[in-house]
Computed example of a mutant assay.
Amino acid sequence: MTQAQSAYIGARIFDGATLWDDHALLVLSDGETRIIGPQDIPSDCPTHSLDGGILLSGFVDLQVNGGGGIMFNDAPTVKTLATVAAAHRGLGTAAILPTLITDTPSQTAAAIKAVTDALDQGISGIVGLHLEGPHLSVARKGAHDGTLIRPMQDSDLRGMLDAVDHIPNLMMTVAPESVTNAQIRAMADAGIIVSLGHSDCDYDTAMAAFDAGARCATHLFNAMSQAQARAPGLVGAALDHGGAASGLIADAVHVHPAMIRAALAANQGPSEVFLVTDAMATAGSDVTSFHLNGREILRSDGRLTLADGTLAGADLTMPQAIRVMVEQVKDPLEKALARATTIPAGMLRCPPSQNRADEMMWLSQGMTKMSWIAEL
């Protein structure tokens, strides 16, 4: 019989959908957790009393370009992945998709190998790979290097279909201008999470791509055709297609809170909006600048930009994004927490374990401090 190992009281407990008040989190000897009433704590079980806050599973971030002072593009190796994952774990994120921004075929191959090796070695926090490019639209390249953007060839498709055999959670951001619906369908059928982004396509083209198997829009509103009265664009299609989820950078810089509210109201579901940080090398570090494809990215006042002011990723953590959603967007706290945990986890073919003791953390009342429960 599995024995109770410890219990935590005094904090609200989030089970992935609901916040429980006046309950206890029981940690069992096999590492599983259970939410119980305080009166049900075994008499011989050590009890830890917390001063408010929330107990919940670690965050799941499907778009992480770097952290700990380094970009994945700089050195796509297992060592880099371990550094980036550790930096994000220090910010409360238990599972990430390291993201390679548009780069050369050799760097893409190196990224696939690095993630494959990291998964084989069980590097904590690495659950797959996100390839953001190179099959995008130059017209909506954002901070991507336009000289490296290109259409998907048959050889590229074969490479992705081979990669997903080794990387079950493989996400690809593509633009319909650079891939065909047949290619999207082939990737989706193989289990690749196809996301539309960095695209200037029109509404009908985007809807056809979603019908072909694309399941997501990358950083909604940013680097894509906008919703207008007679031209809904990719934004409109992502919100109108019930099978399309949308990643969102909720830093109040990339998207105004009023537009986030409008998007949440317009989204048709059942697929939902989830949070991403789009984090760069700055995450979990004090660096004030870094380089991407030879161009300097500057960090200032919560923004990351190229010299010309173009946004280049985000200087954002998940707790900060949740605060923006709750305080400025007025999203219910339970929903905002789900957008950083269970909703992105549900996008994955092989989601990470949740509600296990080693992946549970405590967030302070104002979400300004966090600790893994093993550290409490």
Rank of each mutant, 00 (worst) to 15 (best):
1 M>S: 14
3 Q>L: 15
3 Q>K: 15
4 A>N: 06
5 Q>K: 15
10 G>C: 06
15 D>M: 05
20 W>D: 14
23 H>A: 14
27 V>I: 07
32 E>V: 15
39 Q>Y: 14
43 S>H: 10
44 D>L: 12
45 C>Q: 07
47 T>C: 15
49 S>A: 15
50 L>A: 07
52 G>T: 08
62 L>N: 09
62 L>V: 14
63 Q>S: 00
65 N>W: 01
67 G>M: 09
71 M>Q: 07
76 P>L: 11
82 A>P: 06
85 A>F: 01
89 R>M: 14
102 T>D: 10
103 D>W: 02
104 T>C: 09
107 Q>G: 04
108 T>D: 08
111 A>W: 02
113 K>H: 12
117 D>H: 07
117 D>C: 00
118 A>G: 08
120 D>W: 06
120 D>P: 05
123 I>P: 00
124 S>N: 04
124 S>K: 07
126 I>T: 13
126 I>Q: 04
133 G>A: 02
136 L>V: 12
138 V>L: 01
145 D>H: 10
149 I>V: 08
154 D>P: 10
157 L>Q: 05
162 D>N: 15
163 A>H: 05
166 H>N: 10
177 E>Y: 10
184 I>W: 03
185 R>L: 09
188 A>S: 07
198 H>E: 08
198 H>C: 13
199 S>Y: 00
200 D>V: 00
202 D>C: 06
207 M>S: 04
208 A>F: 02
211 D>E: 15
212 A>T: 09
223 A>T: 01
225 S>L: 08
226 Q>A: 13
232 P>T: 03
238 A>Q: 10
238 A>P: 04
244 A>M: 06
248 L>I: 03
252 A>W: 05
252 A>T: 12
255 V>E: 13
264 L>M: 11
265 A>M: 11
265 A>R: 09
266 A>H: 09
274 F>N: 00
276 V>M: 07
278 D>C: 07
283 A>E: 04
285 S>V: 02
286 D>Y: 13
289 S>A: 15
289 S>W: 15
293 N>W: 13
303 R>Q: 15
307 A>K: 13
308 D>A: 05
317 T>M: 08
320 Q>W: 03
320 Q>D: 12
332 P>M: 07
348 L>T: 08
356 R>P: 00
359 E>D: 12
364 S>F: 04
364 S>H: 13
373 I>N: 03
